[in-house]
């Protein structure tokens, strides 16, 4: 069983070990980390956290657009660790998750993957 280390920078750099095959949300909650969540299938963004180092597999997520992905957001209810990782968790990590579309409209390459244009167009 492959295990990786998760460091949570906005919780005094506390460290946890997670199973690489299981969603990070479940792994952390089982160890007593109080995390927000909603749909638990990768669709609703409530559990988003900011990945500041390392790598995750989150191909099941359907909530994030390219702008949010570029800002490092990961959907913990479906993401699995692929290396040791560092996270900021909770809504205090959401400062680049929400954007007012009338104030700062997204560019076409920043949309969700299925409708985004290529960046160089």
């Amino acid at each position: 069983m492959t295990k990786y280390k998760v460091t949570i920078t906005n919780r005094d750099n506390v460290e946890y070990e997670v199973d690489a095959k299981r969603p990070i949300l479940d792994e952390l909650r089982n160890q007593g980390v109080d995390l927000p969540y909603g749909c638990k299938y990768g669709g609703c963004i409530t559990c988003a956290a900011k990945l500041t180092s390392g790598d995750v597999d989150q191909k099941r997520q359907v909530a994030l657009n390219n702008w949010q992905l570029d800002n490092g957001y990961v959907i913990l209810c479906v993401a699995r660790a692929k290396s040791d990782i560092t996270l900021e968790i909770g809504t205090e990590s959401h400062y680049k998750l929400y954007r007012n579309p009338f104030l700062e409209p997204l560019k076409s390459y920043q949309l969700k993957a299925d409708i985004a244009s290529k960046e160089d167009i």
Binding site: C39, G43, C44, V62, A63, L64, N65, P101, F102, L106
Partner: peptide, 18 residues
């Protein structure tokens, strides 16, 4: 779709018939 409106609203997605 829930996968569209739950994460938030984007004007461009209206144009893309989401």
């Amino acid at each position: 779709a829930p996968n569209t409106f739950m994460p938030g609203f984007d004007l461009e997605e209206v144009g893309h018939l989401k």
